[in-house]
Design a protein around this nucleic acid. Structure first.
Lengths: 202, 202
DNA sequence: TAGCCTGATGACAGTTACTGACATCAAGAC
DNA sequence: GTCTTGATGTCAGTAACTGTCATCAGGCTA
């Protein structure tokens, strides 16, 4: 979404978002007002002042309007993994990467909450979110392998890391007292260690 | 799918599957022959000898035809968790439950491979599979809580367990030498322990 | 046996997501 | 002052799904 374009302001000096920005805004509002299934693409387009066809020129489908900047997180995580100290064990690498990349969640907390509420209310949007997480896991696996982590360990660390992210996010969302995302990650990872550490008695 | 109905045979003594069974079979064939996106519901219905409308009487949507008996696994896992010895640590409970419930994969290996190939080839089907896994995780969490495992630990153990399942399944599918599913679970879980066990040096 | 009930199906119309092709139009380049 | 380019409108079309009603076969009851 390139809706934050400094080049266009209205006479009063406020933003005059482009079509994509208005569409994204309209969609978020409508999904919140009447639910995802109950709003048609035509509704969104009309509120944004464009035609239905224009919606599909900016977003691949009705869901994608909520997943536009979803690459940001993945790119941040991958970069943080590449930049981590060479001797850090894999799970630790993933954990710290999630902490760093998740900082931008703390910034946009209200938007993140709105978005997450819309997603939580609809299975179709949940699916899209889960696919995004699966892609994140694949990217993390690749980033770990690029550091020399062998294939099986990389896969396990990536899946575990994404699981930690998911749980940390949930915790972050439902925590009234705006705890920083990074500390949710740390707590969750510590719990995973506690559960996995004691080897079975057999 | 109630297509295995002993009450109906043709004169030669072979199965005469009902509409749901024929639809499921036709869909699996067509998805393999020309891909999920390239086959219309009308195609499936015609091959099964019914109308389009009848397809939707048996399956909620075009994807659901591949996810019909998907509850079997979840029910098995939940039952195995409930039946596990009381003193077993949570992650161990989930691991053994996955091993037990996954036995039926070894039986239906060829079907499982066909199905998994179709899913792997299409993002929309992947999403549906991921949602199924998310529901499995939720069910596992609930089953652990019912055993008295506290909320945070139950969530972490469930997500970790499902991550192990996912990886074990992948390993099982791509292993030419028909390794039993249970041993894939054990190996993957061992790797998770190895990664998580050593606490960070800090 | 006749009548009835029920479950599965066909037939049909309608909504909505999405796509392709072509026309238009304003803003900047030359 | 044209010319090009990018964004948009318009329109036609496909296909996933849904609601509604008609039909029809099998089984049950009087």
């Amino acid at each position: 979404m390139s809706g934050n374009d400094i080049t266009r302001m209205d006479p009063v000096g406020r933003w005059e978002p482009d079509a994509a920005g208005r569409l994204a805004q309209a969609a978020l509002e409508l999904y919140a007002e009447r639910g995802f299934e109950q709003t048609t693409v035509l509704d969104i387009a009309e509120r944004a002042g464009v035609t239905e066809r224009t919606f599909f020129r900016h977003f691949a489908d009705k869901r994608e309007v909520l997943f536009d900047r979803s690459n940001t997180l993945q790119e941040g995580v991958v970069a943080a993994i590449a930049a981590a100290p060479a001797d850090l064990p894999p799970l630790e690498v993933v954990g710290t990467a999630m902490e760093q990349a998740g900082v931008f969640l703390d910034d946009r907390r209200t938007y993140a909450l709105q978005r997450s509420a819309a997603i939580a209310a609809n299975p179709s949007l949940q699916e899209r979110e889960l696919l995004k997480m699966a892609h994140l896991a694949a990217a993390v696996t690749a980033a770990l392998r690029a550091r020399g982590v062998p294939a099986p360990a990389a896969g396990v660390a990536a899946q575990a890391g994404v699981a930690v992210f998911r749980l940390a996010f949930e915790r972050w969302v439902f925590n009234p007292a705006s705890v920083p995302f990074a500390s949710c990650v740390r707590d969750t990872l510590a719990e995973l260690r506690a559960l996995a550490a004691p080897p079975p008695a057999s």
